[in-house]
């Protein structure tokens, strides 16, 4: 019978999904690496001269050039760059001549110690709030609550991170003096930066969760669940929520990656000794090897986040392991 053929094994899907996703990750990584390599090549004029300034002696410039391998043919430089990357050698800073890998390693830890709690906080706020709002305001009920929620979330989502930072500093550090205004020193120094990082994304994501949840609650399979006379709690949490979450994750994967980039601004306000401060100061001082590696690191984090989001979606919804590209 034709019918039986269409039933396929789930394991095959997972294998193919893993292969497809790994391929995509590798291609993305390759693009990232190549782009960061080309970055220095694309800088107009001589990057070393630009970094050291017009007054630097010509022989110093020349020696740094050869140190960076900029005199060799492009292909050799590229291969050398790839080889160094694989061995963990990210080169040396033009200005301080410290190994870049070391700097990045220290700074990355500080950045992640901000980003990870902010991730957790964002989800911890957005999912419950979104679900509760969806169930409470379904089918045009409680219009006032709905308007208040949507309005608040739009207002919060419209405030840029650095304005949130400044406002938080002005209120809690300057006026009330509860939390330190800057620096990374003790647990209380984390409160304001983590809050500043998660307020906007949490507001936006809570709205996404609500919209997705509303769509799911109108689905046929929710009617089926109600026809089984299950408890409302089970219908909402076991039947509706996982479906709403997959859609939310699809939409918010990019947003979470953006959050990592948002640390750049937050770190600038709080003088946080993280990767963000490094990338800004090195752009301003044209310390290209450092910029290059910082961009590479941020990109790699973003790609990891995206991949994790896809894996999470696949774990919840086995259908997503099928499909093209």
């Amino acid at each position: 019978m034709l019918v039986e053929e269409s039933a396929r094994g789930t394991r095959g899907h997972w294998g193919r999904f893993a292969a497809r996703r790994a391929r995509r990750l590798l291609v993305s990584l390759w693009i990232l690496v190549t782009a960061s390599f080309l970055m220095i090549q694309l800088v107009p004029g001589d990057p070393v001269r630009a970094a050291l300034g017009t007054s630097a002696p010509a022989d110093l410039v020349a020696s740094r050039r050869s140190q960076l391998g900029l005199d060799e043919p492009l292909l050799n430089q590229y291969l050398g760059y790839l080889q160094n990357l694989l061995t963990g050698d990210l080169g040396e800073s033009i200005l301080t001549q410290l190994p870049v890998a070391e700097t990045i390693g220290q700074r990355l830890l500080a950045t992640l110690s901000l980003a990870l709690p902010a991730f957790v906080l964002t989800f911890a706020i957005a999912v419950p709030v979104g679900v509760v709002m969806a169930v409470a305001t379904r089918r045009g009920r409680r219009r006032r609550t709905e308007l208040t929620f949507v309005g608040t979330s739009i207002v919060l989502g419209s405030i840029p991170e650095f304005v949130v930072c400044v406002a938080l500093v002005a209120v809690f550090a300057v006026n009330l003096g509860i939390f330190p205004a800057a620096g990374r020193d003790g647990i209380e120094s984390y409160v304001l930066p983590v809050l500043a990082l998660s307020v906007g994304p949490a507001a936006v994501m809570a709205r996404i969760v609500r919209v997705e949840m509303l769509a799911v609650l109108d689905a046929d399979y929710i009617r089926t669940a109600r026809a089984k006379r299950l408890s409302s709690l089970r219908v909402n949490l076991r039947h509706a929520l996982p479906n709403a979450l997959t859609a939310t994750l699809t939409l918010s994967g990019i947003m979470l990656a953006t959050m990592v980039a948002g640390t750049v601004l937050v770190e600038a306000v709080f003088a946080w000794p993280g990767l963000g401060g490094t990338i800004v100061s090195s752009i301003q001082s044209r310390d290209y090897p450092l910029v290059q590696s910082a961009v590479l690191t941020y990109g790699a984090i973003a790609l990891t986040v995206n991949t994790l989001a896809d894996v999470a979606i696949a774990a919840i919804d086995p259908r997503s392991t099928i499909g093209d590209s």
């Binding site: 995509r24 291609v27 993305s28 693009i31 990232l32 782009a35 960061s36 970055m39 694309l42 800088v43 990019i254 990656a257 953006t258 990592v260 980039a261 948002g262 750049v264 990338i279 752009i283 290209y288 910029v291 961009v295 941020y298 990109g299 973003a302 790609l303 995206n306 590209s325």
Partner: peptide, 18 residues
């Protein structure tokens, strides 16, 4: 689709360098 994987602020910084 590949470009979408990278946050726009990162792309801005990258382009600002070049």
């Amino acid at each position: 689709n590949l470009l979408l994987g990278f946050p726009s602020l990162l792309m801005v910084l990258f382009l600002a360098v070049i």
